[in-house]
Design a binder for these strands. Sequence first.
RNA 1: GGGGGCGUGGUGAAGUCUGGAGUUCACGCCGGCCUGUCAAGCCGGAGGUCGCGGGUUCAAAUCCCGUCGCUCCCGCCA
Length: 599
Amino acid sequence: MAQMSAEVYRTTRPGLLGAANVGETVQVAGWIQTRRDHGGIVFVDLRDSTGILQVVLDPEAASAPAAVLSGLRREYVISVTGAVAARGPEQVNPDLATGEIELVATELRVLSPSDPLPFQLDGRVDVDEALRLEYRYLDLRRPAMAANLQARSNAIRAMRRVLDGRGFLEVETPTLVASTPEGARDVLVPSRLRPGRFYALPQSPQLFKQLLMISGVDRYYQIARCYRDEDFRADRQIEFTQLDLEGAFWGQDEVLEVLEEVAVAVTRDLRGLELARPFPRLTWQEAMDRFGTDKPDIRFGMEIQDLSALFAATGFKAFAEVLAGGGTVRGINAGAQGLSRAGLDGLVERALALGAKGLVWMVVEEDGSLRSPVAKFLSDDEQAALGAALRVSPGDLLLVVADRFQVVAKVLGALRLDMGQPEGHDEIAFVMVTDFPMFEVGEDGSLTSMHHPFTSPEDVTEMAESPGTAASLAYDVVLNGAELGSGSVRIHNPEVQAKVFEVLGITEEDASRRFGWFMDALRYGTPPHAGFAYGIDRMVSILQDQPNIREVIPFPKTQTGADPLTGSPSRVEKEQLGELGIEIAPAVLAIWAEEESPT
RNA sequence: GGGGGCGUGGUGAAGUCUGGAGUUCACGCCGGCCUGUCAAGCCGGAGGUCGCGGGUUCAAAUCCCGUCGCUCCCGCCA
């Protein structure tokens, strides 16, 4: 079979052919999308990654025997030689890119047959995702999924184009790193050569890219796989991909400019849309005040209004007590929702679930008066002022929450999304959120980094003296209400870094043990630097109008971290564990035994 | 850790609330007819332990308990 190596399967591709090729003799190969067998003549839609082409198999013209033609089935892989012919005017298919032509076959070879499929690829029904994942290689043949893979590739290509054009150096950093038990749970990998020790898979290349800055790499980027062992969501997988970047002698403005350029290029390539620059910018406080969240969806208004001043002298006890206690009263005008009493009760329940002590709803009547369980507690002046503040029209639904600022923001922010978020994703609304707080204050008063502990404070003195309110040089990029990524100006001064650890309550000893190597590096001439990481899965899924990131990940895992195709995570042989010095806990072995017993 | 949804021939759904023969619809699959269809058409056929286990009942896809899987959300995600 020496001639096999010289065998020609195709001379062109199905989707590349058009009216210009009429009269040419070509050979194409691909999968049979559908077959229409008329007893004599047989039509086959031949599919590959370029598109679909109709092949006409006439038993009198084709050299293949009739038995072969009638034996063709979906997803058979075939190679066809024939003449490109124009279709008659009655036979043009306007729904097909190649609909003006067809291939009249003279020779057909079956390269691979296919078993009947476990599910249909035609996209007319939503197949159970577990089944799709078990047969992902079939799922990915569907044009919609192939388009997602293509879009992802296009996005990464656009990123590289922008950054390569700006002289960035692409550098790979390790994926077997030291565990830093802070932030997300690490994915751990046992070491064979040093039994009892573990690598962690990186949550991000953060410290390595900072080391690269110290190394003299001026501008760095990496398409970096990152790992966080936390619970799954529609937009969260245990492993995900980031565009990680960093620049020396940079401040926030330089980073944001590059981020915009990347976002513009990716949006252009994926959606053919030219975004206006600069992107809208909000400080964290503005975002929280107006939208109740640090990742605002600015495709619609329904902004939160502070009503505290308006109720300063209110006789309504619930509001007065909150205000006396330093809280705030805020509301949104949700517009004409036309909700039933049950619907309104549902909103109250939702507010309670979000942590509110209550939710005041009011519906604006035709005469401008307010229909509400609490209307009788509000003076005429208050009602009038409320109407003015929320710019009401008859039929509008007003939602008011009184509580601590954090609670009000969370509840109204969530209700705003419930009531107003657009269904489609026609609009692409990027927004930069800046001036994040340095720290998050826990219930017990403890401080944790809002971003990460290598983020520079805006003012070191302020940070030391009032860490609870101190601002940082951290920023996010938000797209349609989703956080696409975060970045910051980093600390390049070891004393400042030590101070941040101190404020975080990390002892000098702890800091030295965990990050001593990094603190040392900071002492050898560290340039000021700043950077960012874009979540590529999220960016592509939103730009592709996909409901979750699994649609743009070729081989994702299920919510319990499993891959139905390969069976990971799998048990391993005792011998393997022995080499690693690892034993399975008796409690786990008992569960295994129970699973295996046939009962 | 918690809350919600889903699980019915190969696929997708209806049936479940209000228990009464594995019933129905669409697609796919197999066979037959058919030489211009294009998600071809027409005729015929096969195919299901209603996720799994237990309980209630004369009787369970349907009610109850448990469990597994998938999914959405809260917590978590420096």
